[in-house]
């Protein structure tokens, strides 16, 4: 079996789709990391976004309404991290663990109370995101398949990746953010309001993740199911680590994950049980993490001090 027959355009198309929420979450993670807030609540933020998107779409009858709901509610949800880890000086790791649990519990609770179902909620009234069809390239093999028939959020995700990168490395705001993350007290003495930068960045990042959540529930399926973020937020955390808070490298890590995900889908269609193929992306992620840290290995006893303490 040749590689070309193994990887089909439709596989790539679905991989690009499935990367989108992770990419947005990873982008959010790099932004937070750059201002010195360790965000590992993306799993919960995606879930809140996905739920809010379904609620919004169901209530307003429009996908745009769903997307707006997702952004607004995820930003609100992110207030916990934005203020908890900055103004109130809480431990970001603990706050994020709590947020992930809160998201899981709260969405499950509201699912039952608002829609009277548990598990999965699907309804014709949930309007999904439409795919953008670019007629100019639509019929071109490969290119048409990959770049056409994607949701506006997928397009936005890649545009935002570029925009965030430029913002981070070419604008005053980006310079200040990088300074805040590297040495908050130094940034403070230069008159940069560290808390404000942190709070606003975490909230903006929340908006990005909310967008990712909307893609999750409205992008391909138009349903919400409990814990549907299913580890994507954690993959995003790893992407941030692999990319060392650089948006482009983090995006590359997301692509790697997308490839692994596509591979697992493909293996499944070859007859391998999905319990095994589902594991592939996580194993790839773990291996990538191991390889990326190999170089950095310092033979120093004191180095084993907890990396994120």
């Amino acid at each position: 079996m040749s590689l070309m027959s193994f990887i089909t355009p439709s596989l790539v198309n679905s991989a690009v789709q499935s990367i989108t929420p992770i990419l947005l979450a990873a982008l959010a993670g790099t932004l937070c990391g750059r201002v010195g807030v360790f965000n590992m609540a993306m799993e919960g933020q995606l879930l809140v976004g996905a739920f809010a998107a379904v609620v919004g779409s169901y209530a307003t009858g429009s996908a745009l309404g769903g997307v707006l709901f997702a952004i607004v509610f995820t930003v609100l949800f992110s207030l916990i991290l934005a203020y908890g880890a900055t103004v109130f000086k809480g431990d970001a790791v603990v706050i994020c663990i709590g947020m992930n649990l809160l998201a899981s519990g709260l969405t499950a609770y509201l699912l039952r109370q608002m829609f009277g179902v548990s598990g999965t909620f699907s309804d014709p009234a949930i309007v999904g995101l439409s795919k953008i069809r670019i007629d100019a390239i639509n019929t071109i093999p490969w290119i048409g398949w990959i770049f056409s028939r994607q949701t506006v959020i997928t397009w936005l995700a890649w545009i935002l990746t570029a925009a965030v990168t430029i913002m981070m490395f070419r604008t005053p705001v980006g310079l200040r953010m990088r300074g805040v993350g590297e040495d908050a007290s130094a940034a403070g003495t230069m008159g940069v309001d560290v808390l404000r930068y942190r709070v606003l960045t975490v909230l903006f990042a929340g908006g990005l993740t909310g967008l990712g959540g909307a893609q999750l529930s409205l992008g391909t399926v138009s349903i919400f199911s409990e814990d549907m973020s299913a580890g994507r937020g954690w993959i995003a955390v790893v992407a941030v680590m692999l990319g060392r808070n650089h948006p482009l490298w983090a995006a590359l890590a997301c692509v790697l994950f997308g490839v692994a995900d596509a591979l697992s889908v493909r293996l499944q269609s070859q007859g391998l049980p999905n319990q095994l193929t589902d594991v592939v992306p996580y194993v790839v992620t773990l291996l990538a993490l191991a390889l990326s840290h190999r170089k950095r290995l310092k033979r120093r006893a004191a180095e084993t001090l907890t990396a994120h303490a």
Binding site: M241, D278, A290
Partner: peptide, 16 residues
């Protein structure tokens, strides 16, 4: 041995 943060590796190891 490799400096892979346990915070994330413990979690990821659960999936396999």
């Amino acid at each position: 041995r490799f400096g892979i943060p346990m915070l994330i590796s413990t979690l990821l190891l659960s999936y396999p």
